[in-house]
């Protein structure tokens, strides 16, 4: 049982997770932001490691990835930076990014490095489930790293059951099939989709991400799941003046 499992088990209120890109806006920002996000009351953190071709991301995270790369961020450097993680942050932390940097680092080494710095889970959207199951599952499990899978409104029930079986922390529901940074459209269709997933009584808890940017969308997500993940809206916020000091304001604007 890792920090993620404990969080989902112990906390009864709706959960809020915050995503940001490592090395953005500055190379040294990563842990300062993580610490501030924790202090402001977020329940867990997703740290993105940048990739040159982030094809599931909209303009905001494309831009933060590009700047992070220009700042010199890479996986080796990130793990160096994260050596101090557990001195400064106690809430669960996930890493999120694309598969190619992970393959070049080595999947086994990647999982071991995650465990060594105290990362609890990872989200690699373009690592196929079948490859994960066949080649990499043991590397994750041996290091107590939870692999988080995505589900969209188009994902079949059969596939959701399979994802549920392979998951051991939570399942990441996309509010719609979209790249990151689009606003959640609160519609009957979205309601029907969230309700359909809820009615499946999955063994894993669910969180909703993509398009969560304010209280309205957060509350909608919390109605059907354990909570929501905010990414692009937060990364965009980081671009504003004195953002680091104003993180509590941002968190309140999502969950009061």
């Amino acid at each position: 049982m890792n920090r993620l499992n404990q969080l989902f088990q112990n906390k009864k209120e709706s959960l809020l997770s915050i995503y940001f890109t490592a090395g953005y806006p500055n190379l040294s920002s990563t842990l300062d932001i993580a610490e501030a996000v924790q202090k402001a009351g977020a329940d867990f953190i997703e740290i993105g490691f940048p990739y040159s071709d982030p094809l599931a991301d909209g303009p905001v995270i494309q831009n933060s990835s590009l700047i992070a790369l220009q700042n010199g961020m890479n996986l080796k450097f990130l793990f160096e930076q994260l050596k101090e993680l557990r001195e400064r942050v106690s809430i669960p932390v996930l890493l999120m990014g694309y598969v190619n940097p992970v393959l070049q680092y080595g999947v086994k080494d990647f999982c071991e490095s995650c465990a060594a710095v105290g990362v609890d889970g990872v989200i690699v959207p373009d690592l196929p489930m079948v490859e994960y199951e066949e080649f990499y599952k043991d590397d994750f499990l041996n290091n107590n790293i939870s692999n988080i899978f995505l589900v969209t409104p188009q994902t079949s029930e059969e596939r959701i059951r399979k994802i549920d079986e392979l998951s051991n922390a939570f399942i990441y529901l996309l509010s719609s099939s979209s790249t990151t940074g689009k606003n959640l459209t609160v519609s009957n269709e979205a309601d029907a989709y969230f309700a359909r997933i809820k009615a499946m009584n999955l063994k894993n808890p669910t969180m909703i991400g993509f398009g969560i940017s304010d209280q309205k969308s957060f509350n909608k997500a919390a109605e059907y799941t354990r909570g929501a993940i905010v990414g692009s809206a937060f990364v965009k916020f980081l671009d504003s003046d004195n953002a680091l000091e104003r993180i509590p304001e941002f968190i309140k604007s999502i969950r009061s």
Binding site: S52, L69, N74, L75, Y98, N100, P101, L103, Y105, D126
Partner: peptide, 21 residues
């Protein structure tokens, strides 16, 4: 190139040691 993943398939790819294209 080295072996890697771009645009949905595993193939040969011009990339940095960090896996950036």
């Amino acid at each position: 190139g080295k072996e890697g993943v771009l645009h949905g398939s595993r193939s040969l790819l011009m990339q940095s040691d960090d896996g950036q294209v």
